[in-house]
Design a protein around this nucleic acid. Structure first.
Lengths: 144, 144
DNA sequence: GGATAATAGTTCGCCAGCGAATGTTTCGTC
DNA sequence: GACGAAACATTCGCTGGCGAACTATTATCC
């Protein structure tokens, strides 16, 4: 039981390092890519910092920092919302979209390396188990 | 396939946060506990920084920082090796051992929460899959 | 309708970890 | 036996992220 967590931690760390070195070839960092990825997965290609922060399990302060970096690199731009002027929309720039696309290719190979040890059927089993654990955690956290 | 990695990352992050808040009650941080834990799991109750660094997947510089913190807190002490004077042995102090023991209790409950969603049999399945992925990564990394 | 609370984002100070460079000590080799 | 290479740990500068305090805007309620 304890082994499960330890092993997962190592696997995650391993894959993160592999991904980082792979992404370096495209000239982008892991946390930048991850943020762009969340943006792209949205229909509108944009989201508020709060939404991103919660999806990425990041503190608001940390999110601001990330967006700063991305904006300075020209991959993203901030747009103050008109209806609610407290809010800010983070929108993907064309440059950001291009870089995301380039990064997608190298990322896939880096991540595939880890799962390659398992048969397709086993991968499904694994995914199912992980999903159930996640769902259980989400629902357990709700009442708080 | 991509989902597997994403879910694992979230689970790991989740359990790390839960563990951190739990460990705070005992007055110890996650990275401190993790280091103590590695020390305790050794017969001699001590290890060199390099050994710890590789076991914890940490850079040498990061390891030095951790040991500094632990030493300042009196949980650990540095002993220069006599045979090889480049080496340093990190040894657990009585205080360190006590704190580790207290931390073990709260940690267990925090980590168990995550795995609780699965039946014992499923836990074994999961552990087996994870283990195989780890072994595969280790052996693949060897030739480099 | 004006005081008060809640919400969204940012700033500030701090910390753990990294990479690169450094100081020591030991090993290999000639 | 001396000298260059390798091994260990550390220092230094930097960076991403966090919590707490702050600002600005909107919602609530008497």
């Amino acid at each position: 039981m304890e082994a499960i967590i330890t092993r997962m931690q190592f696997l995650v760390k391993h894959v993160r390092l592999a991904k980082e070195t792979a992404l370096a070839e495209v000239g982008i960092q892991d946390f930048e890519f991850e943020t762009l990825h969340r943006l792209v997965s949205r229909d509108s290609r944009q989201a508020t910092p709060s939404e991103l922060a919660s999806e990425l399990m990041l503190s608001p302060a940390g999110m601001t920092g990330r967006i700063d970096t991305l904006e300075k690199a020209g991959l993203v731009r901030r747009i103050r919302s008109e209806e609610d002027r407290r809010r800010v929309d983070v929108a993907l720039t064309p440059k950001g979209h291009d870089l995301w696309q380039a990064a997608m290719a190298v990322r896939a190979t880096a991540e595939a390396e880890m799962v390659a040890a398992l048969e397709p059927g086993e991968q499904e089993t694994l995914d199912g188990l992980l999903k159930r654990m996640l769902v259980s955690l989400e629902t357990a956290r709700r009442p708080s």
